[in-house]
């Protein structure tokens, strides 16, 4: 079974926020002026890091953890990890207790006031299962930093890019350590 992961190399992200709007497009009708989305981009900084001003963009999205703490926290087993690695939240099962929210180390779960369930990225599994890339990972990102596929291969690609940059971006995305953990 091939592994499916979404990995965003935040070092390369420019904060253009196209991924957020692409997610919105996927999950809301064309007539809906606004609506839900499952990832959010936010500015981390400017702040002082080792005496130097730094500023990066962060992208909060479900990391589809190997051993997802959110699933363990859920009393009704609404969150499960598929064999291909995708962590799915079953909206029909979710009772809105919100116990998972605090457990997620990445703040990737939100409560939807209207639907009274939690929401999170299900890695566009309806697309993935049909051989399509997740909406946000389907070549819209100008930084080409939203990767979808096998985590080991993605890690390789990111390492190669880092080398080509001349060593820039030596912080690998957190997900890699977590998904190995």
């Amino acid at each position: 079974m091939s592994k499916h992961a979404i990995i965003i190399e935040e070092f390369a992200c420019w904060g253009c926020r196209a991924c957020e709007v692409a997610c919105k497009q996927e999950y809301n009708s064309v007539d809906a002026d606004n609506g839900i989305k499952y990832l959010s981009v936010w500015p981390d900084g400017p702040k002082l890091m080792n005496g130097k001003l730094d500023f990066v963009w962060r992208v909060n999205v479900c990391k589809h953890c190997d051993d997802p703490p959110c699933a363990q926290a859920c009393p009704v087993e609404a969150i499960t990890k598929r064999e291909d690695g995708i962590v799915i939240l079953d909206y029909d099962k979710c009772n809105g207790c919100q116990l998972c929210i605090d457990e997620c180390p990445y703040h990737a779960i939100r409560f939807d006031e209207e639907k009274k369930t939690v929401t999170k990225c299900n890695l566009c599994h309806h697309r993935v299962d049909k051989g399509l890339y997740p909406a946000c990972a389907d070549n819209i990102c100008l930084a080409h930093c939203i990767y979808f596929g096998d985590p080991a291969e993605i890690e390789q690609k990111i390492l190669e890019k880092r080398k080509a940059r001349g060593g820039w971006g030596d912080i690998l995305p957190k997900v890699i350590t977590i998904s190995r953990g």
């Binding site: 709007v21 002026d33 070549n139 819209i140 100008l142 080409h144």
Partner: peptide
Amino acid sequence: GTLCTKGLASAQLAYHK
């Protein structure tokens, strides 16, 4: 093939109430 937020929301401009 990359796009920005505005391009991705063009239909919401076209069909805006």
